[in-house]
Amino acid sequence: MAITRPNYRSVIAVHADSGIKSLSDLKGKTIAMSDLGSTSGQLGPTKILVDAGLQPEADIEIKMLGDADLQAFQNEDVAAWGGSALDYDRFMQAKSLKSESYPIIKNGDLLPSDVFIASSDLDTEYVAELRDRMVENQDKLIDAIVAVEANEKYQGSELVEAKDADYDPIREAYQAIGVNDFTEFVGE
């Protein structure tokens, strides 16, 4: 079971006067991203770059700048910015900036939904019952999630079936940054 996020995608933006019109123009340049391991703030933008034929660190320098990423981009400390479409929209609005000055040159695909995980120690019938109840009461569940501060990203969400293949693009992004071990954690 997973919960969707409307417009949950990564984007790549540049400065309008930079001369950068396509992803291939980023070769040899520096891009700001937010948080290490963030799906929309690192892995999504990395996947966009890899799909365009750019290899992280070999073809483009990536600066992981946390919450300072968009400010560094606005200050022209970097040639481009990669991150969440929602973060881009919020930053543009908060700073009263025009998207024409910081155009998005690539919108990534929708990122996979956030999964709910049940312990493998639980009885399969119990897990199925829990899943069914979550689906039956998804409006109440999503309202409760959205009611928590900083969870407005789930406004308009829905519960969907999680499919392993939906997460392959994220695995590919991890591999592009050198993480190749996807073994399952088995606790004590």
Rank of each mutant, 00 (worst) to 15 (best):
D51F: 08
K27P: 04
Y154M: 09
A165N: 11
E188Y: 05
A16H: 07
L36N: 08
G37E: 00
K21R: 11
I60Q: 02
K106H: 10
L49A: 01
Y154E: 10
G178T: 10
L70Q: 05
S38R: 04
I170K: 02
W81E: 06
I117F: 15
L141I: 15
S119D: 14
V186A: 08
R133L: 10
E136D: 14
Q155R: 12
D143E: 13
S157P: 00
K29V: 05
D143K: 05
A173I: 00
A2F: 04
A58T: 07
L65Y: 03
L110A: 13
Q42S: 05
P56E: 13
I20L: 09
E129N: 10
V115W: 14
D89S: 09
D166E: 13
D143S: 07
T30S: 12
K140A: 15
A94L: 08
G178Q: 06
G44N: 08
G108S: 09
L54Y: 08
A79H: 15
V78C: 00
L43E: 08
D69W: 08
L159T: 01
Q93M: 06
L86T: 12
V148C: 02
V146Q: 07
N7D: 14
S157K: 00
G83H: 06
F116D: 07
G187N: 14
I142L: 06
D132V: 06
V160R: 01
R171I: 14
A162Y: 06
I177Y: 02
M1Q: 08
D139L: 01
T30M: 07
A165R: 13
S84E: 12
M134L: 13
